[in-house]
């Protein structure tokens, strides 16, 4: 249920950026969510839809890039995917692994219409 707070923060950060950068209509907000991040993309999408009404990103689509869970092995240095949340190196079986990806919870970019195009300027 903290997706609501995260969606609120997302909108706040987006509006701060949009104040500084000339832009046309905002089409998409791109976020990156790891497989093991404590965020449900559907809940985040729903919260975003509710909270964005009447803001500078009203009507924009939330695009979620999922990042699979992977670990890097301290023993052999190789990187391997994690299946079923079993944290072992798939290459050498060592338990001394660190999470390499899958914990992401990032606001990547805002996709808006080009302000030049909006004002009708030539290419």
């Amino acid at each position: 249920m903290h997706e609501l707070g995260i969606a609120g923060y997302l909108i706040e950060v987006a509006e701060q950026h949009l104040q500084r950068v000339p832009h046309g209509t905002v089409r998409r907000l791109v976020v990156r969510i790891g497989e093991m991040a404590g965020v449900n993309p559907d809940s985040l999408d729903f919260a975003f839809e509710c909270l964005s009404k009447g803001t500078g990103v009203d009507g924009a689509r939330l695009e979620v890039e999922r990042v699979p869970l992977s670990v890097e092995c301290d023993a052999c240095g190789r990187r391997s995917p994690v299946a079923d949340y079993v944290f072992r190196c798939a290459a050498c079986g060592a338990e001394t692994v660190r999470i390499a990806s899958g914990r992401e919870m990032e606001f990547v970019a805002i996709d808006a219409d080009d302000p030049e195009e909006v004002t009708g300027a030539p290419d």
Binding site: Y9, V21, H23, G24, F107, V108, A109, D113
Partner: peptide, 14 residues
Amino acid sequence: MHLIDVQTGLLADN
């Protein structure tokens, strides 16, 4: 299309 780079953690505040 016009991509505005944000690159911030959603829990950056926390």
